[in-house]
């Protein structure tokens, strides 16, 4: 087993070597624009102009496309069915038996799917091009508590171990005569004895790990240092501020635009 960084795709690219907060600011800006600026096709435009080129630069475009497709498709289908056909009133585009596809519903579904596409693809772009420990280190510098960083990082590494453990526990019960082969009901009943040992032995593990963390001064207050060094540049810092301001600007403009007619009238 080599080092497992979760979703991270190790590549040599300019996107990979950007400071995590720069990526976070950029993706936050894209997300704000795609969600806030009206227009059915806005999210798709932002995806095409904002996400796709960067994914290509980061050499993770195929991963983004397939990952986003898999994650968004089920949402898109259900949105299309529910909103397209069950939109209360509107222009009927097509009548299929008792159901009628309405234009307003269809456009709502397209926009909804676009927003989900943006949420998923920004998350994936960040995860594919940023090592999780770099991300949590950067978040720590923003003031996010250590314990949250710990939960994120340890979950990535320890959860995969659960599967092995679950298999062993199931094997141990089968070895004592627990029938796990057969109907769904038999298998469902077999799962119950699995839950308790998994839970209890996890508690023992967690207690021991808590002790190990204390021994390593995890609970100590005061300044901490880091072996991992994040690469940052003045222009990245400037860019981050600009992106943050721009994102805020878009949001403020949108709120103003929504509220202004009411106050002005």
């Amino acid at each position: 087993m080599t080092v497992n960084y979760g979703l991270y795709v190790p590549k040599q690219s300019g996107i990979h070597s950007l400071h995590p907060l720069t990526k976070l600011a950029y993706l936050g800006f894209c997300l704000a624009v795609s969600w806030v600026i009206p227009g059915t096709w806005t999210p798709y435009l932002v995806f095409l102009l904002g996400i796709v080129p960067l994914s290509a630069l980061g050499q993770v475009l195929p991963n983004i496309l397939s990952g986003a497709f898999k994650a968004v498709l089920p949402f898109a289908i259900s949105l299309f069915v529910v909103q397209g056909f069950f939109w209360p009133e509107g222009t009927v585009l097509q009548q299929i038996g008792p159901f009628s596809l309405k234009e307003e519903g269809l456009f709502f579904a397209i926009r909804g799917a676009g927003r989900i596409l943006m949420a998923v693809s920004t998350f994936l772009l960040l995860s594919y091009t940023t090592r999780p420990d770099e991300l949590t280190l950067a978040l720590g510098q923003l003031g996010v508590p250590n314990s949250i960083a710990y939960v994120i990082l340890s979950t990535l590494q320890i959860i995969p171990r659960f599967q092995t453990k679950a298999t062993t526990i199931l094997d141990a019960q089968r070895s004592r005569g627990l029938e796990t082969e057969g109907s769904l009901r038999v298998r469902a009943r077999a799962l119950l004895p699995l839950v308790l040992p998994l839970l209890l032995s996890s508690i023992v593990d967690i207690e021991e790990r808590a002790i190990a963390l204390e021994v390593r001064a995890f609970g100590r207050q005061g300044p901490k240092t880091s072996l991992l060094v994040l690469h940052d540049t003045p222009w990245q810092r400037l860019l981050r501020w600009l992106l943050l301001l721009a994102a805020l600007g878009v949001i403020v403009w949108r709120i103003y635009a929504a509220l202004a007619p009411r106050f002005l009238s």
């Binding site: 497992n4 090592r131 340890s154 190990a212 001064a217 060094v229």
Partner: peptide
């Protein structure tokens, strides 16, 4: 196994964990 923090990805970084918490200079 239970003494591995899970918060670091390599042996070197795992050893660093305690020193980082103590604030030892790089």
């Amino acid at each position: 196994f239970n003494q591995i923090t899970g918060a670091r990805f390599t042996v070197r970084e795992e050893i660093a964990f305690g020193l980082e918490n103590l604030g030892v200079p790089l």
